[in-house]
Amino acid sequence: MKELLRTTDPTVIAFATVLLEGEGIATFPLDVHMSILDGSLGILPQRLMVASQDHFRAAAIMRDNDIPTGL
């Protein structure tokens, strides 16, 4: 697993997930509920992970759609 995307915007995670799954790339969101557990208001970033063999293609899809990866 490799980290593809890190952001505090949940809409970016949702959009990236739909794009990648449309291309047949499985995604794994991490840290989705960490801000709630910490008591903060969405200031902790969420991460989107992909399989190592899909990382290069997934990163190209992010660039092609002007999605900043935050890395």
Rank of each mutant, 00 (worst) to 15 (best):
T69I: 07
K2W: 00
V50L: 06
F28A: 08
T17H: 04
E23A: 15
M34G: 01
E23K: 13
S52E: 15
L48K: 05
I36M: 13
G70T: 01
P29M: 11
G70Q: 02
L48Q: 07
G22V: 00
A16T: 12
V50F: 08
D9Y: 10
D38A: 15
S52F: 02
I43W: 03
L4R: 01
R6F: 08
T7M: 12
L30D: 02
I25L: 05
A59W: 09
G42Y: 03
L37P: 00
G70K: 04
A16C: 05
R63F: 01
T7I: 11
T69L: 12
P68S: 15
D38I: 03
G70E: 02
T27G: 03
G24V: 04
G24P: 05
L20K: 12
L4M: 01
R57V: 09
L37I: 03
A26P: 00
T17I: 01
V50T: 07
A59I: 01
E3C: 09
L71A: 13
I13H: 00
D38V: 08
V50A: 05
A51F: 09
D64P: 00
P29A: 10
L37T: 03
T8Y: 05
A59C: 05
I61C: 01
A60H: 04
G22E: 03
S40E: 12
